[in-house]
Amino acid sequence: MEVGVDRERCEANAVCLGFAPEVFDLDDDENLVITSGPFVGEQVERVSQAVSGCPKNALFITD
């Protein structure tokens, strides 16, 4: 599993960081940064929750 972001939709409100802080971060310009995958184990569940919980639907799962 890997995750991507639609930068046009992302407002960097950091909801995803609450679900998976080891996967998501904000850079100095408050742009979302995603660590490289693939993600396994418990990370899959947390990343899936982050995708579902994104208020702007900016995150998506890729294979």
Score class of each variant (00 low, 15 high):
S52E: 08
P21R: 12
A50K: 00
D6A: 08
V23M: 10
C54R: 00
A58C: 03
G53P: 02
E42R: 08
Q49D: 08
N57Q: 02
A50I: 00
M1L: 14
P21A: 12
E8G: 12
P38K: 11
N31C: 11
L32N: 05
R46I: 05
E11C: 09
S48T: 15
P55G: 07
P21F: 06
N31E: 15
V33Q: 14
G37F: 02
V33F: 13
V51R: 00
P38C: 11
L59M: 03
S36L: 12
A12P: 07
F60H: 04
R46T: 13
F24E: 14
S52I: 06
G53N: 05
F60D: 02
C54P: 06
S48Q: 15
L32G: 01
P21Q: 07
V3G: 01
I34V: 07
G37Y: 03
V3K: 01
L59S: 02
N13R: 14
A12V: 07
D27R: 10
A20K: 08
R7A: 13
E11W: 10
V51Q: 00
V15E: 04
A12K: 04
D27A: 12
R7M: 07
F24Q: 11
N31G: 08
F60R: 07
V44P: 04
N57T: 05
I61Q: 09
V44Q: 10
S52A: 14
N57I: 01
V33N: 10
F24P: 12
G41Y: 11
E30R: 15
D6P: 06
E42A: 10
C16M: 00
E2V: 12
C54S: 05
S52P: 01
F24A: 15
F19K: 01
R46L: 09
A58Q: 00
E45Y: 03
G4N: 13
L32V: 14
E30P: 07
D25V: 05
R9E: 12
D6H: 08
L17K: 01
V23K: 11
I34Q: 02
Q49R: 07
G37C: 03
D28L: 15
M1C: 06
V5C: 13
R7I: 06
T62V: 15
R9F: 04
E42I: 01
S52N: 06
Q43L: 15
N31S: 09
E42P: 06
R7V: 11
V40K: 05
V5P: 01
S52D: 09
L17Q: 03
E42N: 07
I61S: 05
E22C: 04
G37H: 04
C16E: 00
D25L: 10
S52T: 05
Q49A: 15
T62S: 11
E42K: 08
C16A: 03
V33T: 15
E8T: 13
E2A: 13
L32Q: 04
E2I: 13
E11K: 15
T35D: 06
D28N: 14
G53Y: 06
D28K: 13
